[in-house]
Design a protein around this nucleic acid. Structure first.
Ligand SMILES: [Mn+2]
Ligand SMILES: [Mn+2]
Ligand SMILES: [Zn+2]
Ligand SMILES: [Zn+2]
Lengths: 134, 134
DNA sequence: CCCCCTTATTAGAACTATTCTAATATATAT
DNA sequence: ATATATATTAGAATAGTTCTAATAAGGGGG
């Protein structure tokens, strides 16, 4: 993804386009893993850990990324959320699989009915184990 | 809920029925809030915080309860999960509303197709804000 | 292009939710 | 009742995250 595109995304979301923010955003856009702050900091070796955390907070506020808490390792994982999707988590391996093959509109409508709120988004994790008879 | 019932639930899930576990389980069954470990510890004043954490871990392993991470306060919240349900979270107040008016079977099927796993459960949080024109 | 001012970055310290330790107590099967 | 594996506990330790306050840099207006 080009620097100009990253700059535009950040500015359209009301964020100053700093070198550090472009790097963190590009990292999340281009990695299919769901890294922790520490992993991002290790890979982007000239950006401080505090800035990684600050940037992740800003990107979450804009909705560009989400945080996923894997209770397995006590660390927060981050995920580019340009296209909303849900996660299937293998309980045996902690592998996180991205999936978007389900229309959440009916769930939104149910949630609106149940709460009276205007629904703005969702975080869905479905858990599974390796099939016995594949 | 009677002591004998709590004892039975714990033993049926392979856990020794200690006084402390019965108290924590009863606390979660009878409270509609989604408390943190510290809240439980404060209310059950003769049970150590370590035991509250140990018990919560055991109850999660059995599936009797789940943990919910509210990124608002950095603390893990716990929830009796005797009947699976999903949560609608008010982003303005952090209020957590329980809801079960949606059949998750189609989502399970989609998740199975996407991952090849046998689905065992889900954690769903839907976010919303107060409606403008109620 | 150049200020200016607001906002961002940084290293390191601080915080605190959670986990660990290892000594004591208890549940449950026999 | 006894034995034994398991649970509880206080307090220490850990580590992920947040805070501090000094420095740097973005970007709008001139
Ligand atoms: Mn991703
Ligand atoms: Mn509940
Ligand atoms: Zn994802
Ligand atoms: Zn609930």
């Amino acid at each position: 993804m080009t620097d100009q595109k990253l700059r535009t995304i950040l500015q359209e979301h009301g964020l100053k386009a700093t070198y550090q923010r472009m790097a963190v955003l590009e990292y999340l856009v281009t990695h299919k893993t769901h890294p922790t702050a520490e992993m991002i900091h290790e890979d982007l070796s000239n950006i401080s850990l505090a800035t990684v955390y600050n940037t992740l907070d800003k990107l979450i506020e804009t909705g560009l990324i989400i945080a996923i808490d894997i209770h397995d390792d006590g660390k927060r994982h981050f995920d580019y959320y340009g296209e909303p999707h849900y996660h299937v988590i293998n309980q045996q391996t902690s592998e996180i699989i991205d999936a978007d093959n389900f229309d959440m509109a009916p769930l939104f409508e149910a949630a609106r009915k149940a709460s009276g709120l205007t629904i703005t988004g969702y975080h869905i994790e479905v858990y599974g184990v390796k099939s016995e008879n594949p």
